[in-house]
Design a protein around this nucleic acid. Structure first.
Lengths: 164, 164
DNA sequence: GCCATAATGACAGTATGTTGGCATTAGATA
DNA sequence: TATCTAATGCCAACATACTGTCATTATGGC
């Protein structure tokens, strides 16, 4: 049985949604592999670079739980990565005057240097792809994904409540 | 430092690519959670349903390695899932007349039943979302993702050669 | 037919993510 | 104040995916 056959009785919109799901899963895998490949030369992985980026973007020291919420990940996943990055000397945990257990995560000098390298890698990759893959509608496609993201997130709030 | 600041010096296309990467990573997480939630009542997970679907779509018995190639995943990841599904009685391994080690994966009667349940779940979810999330350009967005997928896959062939 | 090469499956190890349980801390409320 | 609830970090277990190594099996060139 082919995919066409399976989606035969689906409405066009429903079919597009299912195909979108498959396309995103595939593209996500590609981006993951690509990212890990790109960041390897600077001793980083996709996940670790993203955590560093999230902390950098925030601009102020946050707790692990706050960072996790910002990233839409579970508390423990981010905590694990943070502990690794602390071991690597890219982050430090500082006492939080407002909470004895929830220490604040701060970027070290080595961490700042690493963030510059991450940006450089990102810049080179994206400019190179952008100059070769010239297909219009990138912005519109991006907008579509973001509204779908928002819709699904909002429509299944219950799913996103209990994370850790 | 904000994301806007970080992407400041990027060309608009490069910026869109980076944002697309983030959007896809997020949407993928949402789809993953959603899928696992949807398939739980029928005792399945996202990954297992997708492997069942891939075998179903093929229409003829394949080896684990062939299924993995079709899905764009590594041989071992799919092998692991297949072994679980065999234990669950949804798949059986048959002797392959052309290869003593590479046995053919076939769907059992229980597996066929499970596939019907998977389709039903997929149908209900996609029709329900499609009727609530009415945003045009789904097909165009899908096309964009697929060409980007193809481009990235082709442009980094070396990355995809050694998988298992 | 022989031998180098590729493909396959099992096993082990790693990375990323989730969940659950637990003790501790903060905060809100009676 | 006392107490209940929520939040936080640690630990352990699991799910998904990748890689590397190994023995076995095909396959193709000589």
């Amino acid at each position: 049985m082919s995919l066409e056959k399976i989606l035969d009785e689906f409405s066009p919109e429903a079919e597009a949604l299912v195909r979108l799901n498959l396309a995103i899963s595939k593209l996500n895998g590609i981006f993951l592999d690509l990212g890990n490949e790109l960041f390897r030369p600077i001793g980083m992985t996709n996940a670790r670079s993203q955590v560093m980026g999230a902390i950098d973007i925030a601009g102020v020291p946050l707790t692990a739980a706050q960072i996790a919420r910002n990233m839409g990940l579970s508390r423990q996943s981010v905590q694990r990565i943070i502990n690794i990055l602390v071991d690597d000397g890219l982050l430090v945990l500082e006492d939080n005057p407002h909470h004895k257990r929830a220490s604040l995560v701060k970027i070290t000098a080595a961490g700042e240097e690493k963030i510059l390298q991450i940006r450089e890698v990102l810049f080179r990759w994206s400019e190179q792809v952008a100059s070769n893959f010239k297909i219009g509608g990138l912005e519109q496609g991006l907008g579509l994904l973001q509204s779908l993201s928002d819709y699904l997130e909002q429509s299944s709030v219950s799913t996103f409540n209990n994370r850790g």
